[in-house]
Design a protein around this nucleic acid. Sequence first.
DNA 1: GTGAAAGCGCTAACAT
DNA 2: ATGTTAGCGCTTTCAC
Lengths: 342, 342
Amino acid sequence: MVRAGSLSNHGRPQPRRPTMADVAREAGVALRTVSRFVNGDATVGEDFADRIRRAIETLDWQPDERARQLRSGRTRTIGAAVRNISDAHPVLRAVDESARAAGLTVVAMSTEDDEEREREAVVSMCRRRMDGIIIEPIAENHGYLQPEIDSGMPVVAFDRPATGVEVDTVLSDNRGGIALAFEHLVRQGHRRIGYIGDDERIYTGHERAVAFHECLRAHCSAATGMVHPGPIDPARIAAALNRLRSDPEPATAILTGNASTTVAVIRQLGGDFGSIALVGFDDFALADLLRPGLTVVAQGEAEIGRTAIDLFQARAADPSRPVQTVTVPTTLIPRGSGELAP
Amino acid sequence: MVRAGSLSNHGRPQPRRPTMADVAREAGVALRTVSRFVNGDATVGEDFADRIRRAIETLDWQPDERARQLRSGRTRTIGAAVRNISDAHPVLRAVDESARAAGLTVVAMSTEDDEEREREAVVSMCRRRMDGIIIEPIAENHGYLQPEIDSGMPVVAFDRPATGVEVDTVLSDNRGGIALAFEHLVRQGHRRIGYIGDDERIYTGHERAVAFHECLRAHCSAATGMVHPGPIDPARIAAALNRLRSDPEPATAILTGNASTTVAVIRQLGGDFGSIALVGFDDFALADLLRPGLTVVAQGEAEIGRTAIDLFQARAADPSRPVQTVTVPTTLIPRGSGELAP
DNA sequence: GTGAAAGCGCTAACAT
DNA sequence: ATGTTAGCGCTTTCAC
């Protein structure tokens, strides 16, 4: 039922939104004066300012960002192409907060770890003429970004490097993180440590697996390790886990290469979680609620996000500056699962 | 170091991005013809189409969304003002997917549960002249939305109703959900059931607390209940929990009013989790990994998101249609914690 | 089907 | 300090 209450305007012909010209007319000043007042370009006579203020109030005028952006050439907006905007994403949070502080709006789009979606997101950002792009790269090759970069679009990659183009990049210290975890387990007395990680074709999967091998070499007199990298899939995780535990000399500790793998392993261990030491790469919400609490290598997501914005700003300010890659350290957070004796 | 490689264009003066006029010139056709070809407004001669395609390719032209939106008056974009875009948000995901399917782009902004931030987000959406707004309301009063609604902006609220304005709304069946949980516990034989929930000044906190009271009345011969609603704060949770357990006839089961409270309670119970039956309102990631698994009342987030987009579309198609509120059912997911005997 | 002109709402250059 | 004029890049009349 439609009522003709004062609360509702439904059904009435929609009044055209007021424009800056309407404000100027209402205030009895020139359009340009309104613009100057609104943008603070120059000081405006106090009486004029008052009339403009009142006119804006009366008409309930709001500037049209589209027109403003079109005319001025800048959007004060940067795009963030991330895996999934609907999942928890501490980096995105930091990007958003840092950008806000700099007076920039962040528009985030999901890539769903899909090359096609990533390109769609980037294209959409370019068509909106955003001032820059922050990307968590998924595509095999980012050559498609080259024309955009050449036409002056600042691009910053994080988490993984973008391949085929030279862009500013923020990465976690993947190798250092694995070393932290490995040495922690060695210190607890573990000598047979297994690794289950992500597909090695993925950058972080590769880095972490390589780092694990390096750790094995460095500690070779003490530790024997097993690596089972590959796609994250329950069956594969189960198989890897089985091999690690059914070995004549079974693993006494497991290192997992990312949060999804960690969760999959815990799920697989079921009631046996806590019977074998476990350290996961990546912290996640509620990891402390598990019994035992999950020991993890935490990435510096907040710093990664902040750095991404810093790099964007530096690039925007000086397009000719050399491309830079920043590595953000990781930290070990002991919560119990990594402190179990062999 | 700046190198003059073919990969990099840094330092060169930025070539102006090509415009549609450039494409027209390159193709040797009128501007209007390019526009028609690009938008499929009308059929364009095949030879012309070819030349335009080639010209677009050559110049690597991409339409300027700002100009297009300014001129056409529509943005094909809707804003989503949600608590936090960086936390997991299943509703936002569904909103995004549904909108994509309808050819709309969703721009999500965080309100951080802050009135000021909510208004900032809404203002930003209006200034961008988005086609509609999906909002998870936090403000005490949403009267400030009225002018926008009057000027034809479709607004859809979800999770909580917007106060002071009449807008299409999607809500969870909060009362039904509490009843589901309560009756489940009664069926397990519990007769003393405690409730710890959110601040009653918050809509969902209120609804769920009221529903709990109704359940108590309906089962009064069987169950005695305790309610301890208030802000989510570890000390308060601890106190509430203490009272429930130190009663002469202590509670044998607890019902929590939302995910944050559930997590706070589990954290507080520590090793005692599993010694008392617990059902939480709201499902969350990893709830199944706890020992025992957490029994929850799950909201239909995907349906809420889809419905929000449906309501938006209906409103956009017919601004005079009556305002509608849709209630989405909840489901009980037993995982162990709610199936413990008294 | 195609083309010329107007204009979306605003800011940037010049006047004054 | 204020007003006038142009024009951002596109879509939309309206002629042909």
